[in-house]
């Protein structure tokens, strides 16, 4: 059978004959899912910024209360991270290309977003972890020095354990994000690039 015959049979076939659409249920589902999607994105961003605000506030409060300069450094680190989150999202929002909603431009926009996420996560040490490290190191150093002076070398072990715990948490955050790149974003980038190539080749 030639393609023209196939096309003619295709067009005369009632493709919806076996299916009825429950329009009310459908509309409710669409509304619900749209709201869920928007609120989950908003919630995710809020949690990230809120965590940075809490770190900034808690360390800032402690710095004022204890009059300890190293805690100001911790607070400044949190402030930097929170500001980076907000500014980065604002820049990305502004840079979002005006899409003509063709699959090609949508794929290109998605690819740009995925590439940015990969860049962010690969460089998480520089913009997320490093700003927090000077304050933490300074604070632990001061505590260690005071402990050594006041309570002797044995108490220093406790401070060393806390320091080690903080280092492990930082290392775990770094590794988790690299895993996220490897397992989620890299495969998505490959898929989008392949799709884009098939449109352009």
């Amino acid at each position: 059978m030639g393609f023209d015959d196939l096309q003619s049979k295709w067009q005369s076939h009632d493709h919806g004959a076996r299916l009825n659409v429950d329009a009310d249920l459908l509309l409710n589902e669409v509304r619900r899912n749209h709201r869920t999607l928007l609120s989950s994105l908003f919630y995710r961003d809020m949690v990230e910024v809120a965590a940075a605000v809490i770190v900034t506030g808690v360390f800032g409060f402690m710095a004022v209360k204890l009059n300890e300069w190293s805690l100001y450094l911790c607070s400044a680190g949190g402030l930097f991270v929170g500001t980076y989150f907000v500014v980065d999202r604002w820049i990305q929002h502004r840079r979002r290309p005006v899409s003509d909603d063709s699959p090609q431009s949508c794929i290109e926009a998605s690819l740009a977003q995925v590439n940015h996420q990969i860049w962010l996560l690969k460089n998480i040490f520089w913009w997320y972890l490093l700003p927090l490290i000077p304050g933490m190191v300074a604070f632990l150093g001061i505590v260690a020095w005071k402990t050594l002076r006041d309570a002797g070398p044995l108490a220093l072990l406790l401070v060393a354990a806390v320091g080690l715990f903080c280092a492990l948490v930082f290392w775990a955050v770094y590794l988790l994000n690299q895993q996220g790149v490897k397992k989620t974003f890299e495969p998505r980038r490959v898929e989008l690039e392949a799709l884009l190539a098939s449109l352009k080749s």
């Binding site: 004959a17 076996r18 299916l19 009825n20 659409v21 429950d22 249920l25 459908l26 589902e29 899912n33």
Partner: peptide
């Protein structure tokens, strides 16, 4: 995945 089925089989005319 969700389970609200809004497509239903209907008797083909």
């Amino acid at each position: 995945k969700h389970h609200a089925m809004f497509l239903n089989e209907a008797a083909a005319t």
